[in-house]
Design a protein around this nucleic acid. Structure first.
Lengths: 158, 158
DNA sequence: CTTGACTCTGTAGTCACTCAAGGGTTTCTA
DNA sequence: TAGAAACCCTTGAGTGACTACAGAGTCAAG
């Protein structure tokens, strides 16, 4: 099959597939006479695995590790557990941060229930004073903007 | 004061300040004879405002809007409300996504309680089958990796 | 007068894509 | 059989919000 069909089957877009190839996540495929990439069922499976991991917000590096374990089945999978535990930790931590964030934003929002002058806007006043409850700690957890797998939103945002 | 002191006072790093200046979020400051940027109290306040908004995961564009309202106090602040409401919506949505994500990851983790061969690893098996409950919808919400305000972690991650 | 801390500019790198230009190939339709 | 449409190719640049680095200049203390 050609790249377009692989993309359809795995719910990816074509550029992403070529990007994964450049990045070493997908093997370099055979080419047709017209220089088109030719894929097989194994590629569909590998790409689907990658996309499933991405939908769980794993980094490409984490996925690389998992792919390695898939390919060397004799190795002990304690590392797989460790990777997943760490990843769950990141997700949990990010959720706690977002909960705190939501609370602060709602507090802020209540300061200005109705439209008034910006001169007396409780929101701007609130943002001008210290609210931060403490410095955020490090994590491999990102912010609140532009979800990774938002492929149905191409070109609308921004 | 020089840029280093401003950075300390606002809990930012120096490059970020210069970046905000390039990006138009901070006004171009005066310069000393030796070409050093010279800041005043107003800069500390403006930068702190920006950092507080960033700690609430607002984009620089959103912050630009808020700064505009801070500077034109006669304008109606209904737009401030709208901006904040929308932002709260994004945060709430991302939290729901992360909750679902956490659930899936923990499900996955339970498939492999102990170290075994990767050949029989329930985690890898699980990732090789379809789990995705439905496509993620678009939002201005990011993933799970590398928190924005992790400034105390310089150079460790990656 | 030298050391070291600080600052400057400019450029490139991060992550995981996404888009666009400018061309080639294949397939469908008239 | 011609030509249009759909697909594919490579290359390079753009996204957001920084971060890092090179190579140079400035300043205060010893």
């Amino acid at each position: 099959m050609k790249i377009g069909e692989l993309a359809r089957l795995a719910g990816t877009n074509v550029e992403t597939i070529r990007y994964y190839e450049r990045d070493g996540l997908l093997p370099v495929p055979a080419r047709s006479e017209g220089n088109y990439r030719i894929y097989r069922e194994t590629h569909v499976q590998r790409l689907s695995f990658i996309r499933r991991c991405r939908s769980l917000d794993m980094t490409l590096d984490e996925i690389r590790v998992l792919l390695h374990f898939k390919e060397s089945p004799q190795e002990n999978c304690a590392d797989v557990n460790r990777l997943l535990d760490r990843h769950i930790g990141h997700v949990t931590q990010r959720m706690q941060e977002l909960q705190e964030l939501e609370r602060q934003l709602k507090d802020l929002r209540e300061r200005c229930g109705e439209a008034r002058d910006a001169a007396h806007c409780g929101i701007l006043d609130g943002l001008s004073q210290a609210i931060m409850p403490g410095e955020k700690s490090a994590s491999h957890v990102q912010g609140t903007h532009q979800h990774i797998l938002a492929q149905d939103d191409r070109g609308k945002h921004g």
